[in-house]
Amino acid sequence: MSSETAGTASTAGSEGGDGSTGDSGGLLGRGFETDDRVYRALLYASAAIFLLFGLFPVYWMAQNSLKTREAILDGVSWFPSAEGFTLSNYAVLTSGDIQLYFFNTLVVTMGTVILTVVVSLIAGYGLARLSFPYKEGFARFLLFGYMFSPIVLGLPLYLIWQEIGLLNSRVGLIIALTAISMPFSVWLMWKYIQTIPEAMEESAWVVGASRWEGFRDVIIPQTQPAIIASALFAFALAWNDFTFAQILLPSNEATTFAPGILRQITQGYDIAWNDIMAASMAMTIPPLLFAYFLQSYLLQGFQIRSL
């Protein structure tokens, strides 16, 4: 009996995608209920593992951001103790360099999100609705953007930006990040706008709306899911960026969170794990909220075939 059960387990497990190829032969003549129970057990076990590995680091970050410096140095503990508990670590967000880094990160992220959405919306509209030659060439050109490597491009950009005065400028970073978010966003808008019937716009033109008015009143409201999805991806890109910022924002005043805090650590300034964990929490909470409330848009973004 036990060997039979094992056979079922491997069969159900391969549905879970663990790579082991089950032989379906062992399944013949077995009641569907046993099969189903094992399958569900593996399913919930998988979910539990994801939750554990997904949440544990966040939990660890959260609980250590609530400990005093001394409590952390006391060694590993699973909860903040009563005397080791403090909220004062979060003061790091509103003071000194960290505050500056956060501000810069916010500016760069918002700038990238806005620029990405505007540029990709317009380009996507043009590709979906206007007929002009070389569209196929443009599609290739667009996808080539996936090959943009921050390290390969950042190196030459360093001297170019220096020459034209964009080094240490948030605008320079926003431009760079917008460019590498283009292939995804433009493709998404393009494919999404194609799903909106042309009659929608034409019915607006018939009643006298100009192309711009039709775009504003009919296309933009209906493209909202794609706008949210592409904004989300631009956010992920800008919020995550380290390499471009490290190279293109060398000065401390201009830099964003990632290179900034790393500099603080490597240069051995007066910064401790409790502060770092508090700052990390601040970088983690927006993604957590977005992942919960906007997950359908995230999926929708990837559903448009071919990126």
Binding site: A47, G54, L262, Q295
Partner: peptide, 30 residues
């Protein structure tokens, strides 16, 4: 929805946080 949110947030969490957590969690003292 909640499990998906947990999984997806890993993709949205910036790499610097992952690195800092790595450094912290493998630290010899803490």
């Amino acid at each position: 929805k909640i499990v998906t949110a947990v999984v997806f947030s890993a993709y949205l969490v910036p790499i610097i946080v992952v690195s800092l957590l790595g450094l912290f969690m493998f630290d010899t003292f803490t």
